[in-house]
């Protein structure tokens, strides 16, 4: 039974978990969410720009979007984070005097997320029937107003599930920012777990980190399913007043 005990002690040492949990919740969680939300938001903005460029009639814009997407989708996250974070770090330090790795970490995560989000948006926009653009143009709207008011809003709705998936991977990828060197107050969930594990030689803090990631991501995956379902079947129809009246009438 020694081996089993050893295993349980290595992975499920409740005391070690309890010790790391407060800092994980008060420091790690806000930092992880800051990284994921800000790069998710910025990634959506840049991604939309890439998507619109990608379907532009101007071939130069199309190519720029294509090249950007291919590069940032094709390079491993860890390489991008190191290149941006460590490569641009000294310049940022000279310009601003700040050694905070968050801005560059967020930049690196944003640049990568934008490549994926751009493709998601582009596929959504291109899936909208041609007749929608035509009907909008026929009303007298120009190309850009038609895209903004009619085509893009429909395209975004169709890809909401894919967008949430992308956000889930951002939550996970944000852990890679530890490569840039973090002060104790800058650590995100993974780094806190990893530090505690390294100090104690016990892996339980990492299990705690994993559990916390699941707490964040599992509800999101279910949100995806909910949105997907809602988009497929539509909002539950509001009943007409007479339909509502009928069951009441029956009871009376």
């Amino acid at each position: 039974m020694d081996a089993l005990e050893q295993l349980i002690k290595t992975f499920f040492d409740w005391e070690a978990m309890g010790a790391v949990l407060p800092s994980m919740l008060t420091v790690g969680l806000p930092n992880t969410l800051t990284l994921a939300f800000s790069s998710g938001l910025l990634g959506c903005i840049l991604g939309m720009l890439l998507a619109v460029m990608g379907i532009s009639r101007n071939p130069v814009l199309r190519w720029l979007s294509r090249i950007y997407t291919d590069v940032f989708r094709g390079v491993p996250a860890i390489v991008t984070i190191l290149l941006i974070g460590i490569g641009l770090g000294p310049i940022v330090r000279q310009l601003t005097g700040s050694t905070n790795p968050f801005p560059l970490g967020i930049l690196a995560l944003t640049l990568m997320a934008a490549a994926y989000i751009g493709e998601i948006f582009r596929s959504g926009i291109q899936s909208v029937e041609k007749g929608q653009l035509e009907a909008s143009r026929a009303l007298g709207f120009g190309y850009s107003s038609s895209m903004r008011l009619v085509v893009i809003p429909q395209g975004i709705r169709r890809v909401l599930p894919a967008l949430v998936n992308q956000f889930i991977s951002l939550i996970k990828d944000s852990s890679l920012i530890y490569l840039l060197g973090l002060l104790s107050s800058q650590r995100e969930i993974f780094r806190i777990g990893n530090d505690a594990a390294a100090n104690s030689g016990n892996l339980s803090p990492l299990i705690a980190a994993a559990a916390l990631y699941l707490v964040l991501t599992v509800p999101l995956t279910h949100l995806v399913n909910f949105i997907d379902n809602r988009l497929r079947t539509g909002k539950p129809e509001k009943r007409e007043p007479d339909e509502l009246a009928a069951p009441i009438g029956k009871k009376a």
Partner: peptide, 12 residues
Amino acid sequence: GMVFQQFNLFPH
């Protein structure tokens, strides 16, 4: 004004 075979109302 133009009216289309497939209506092309804005579904959103």
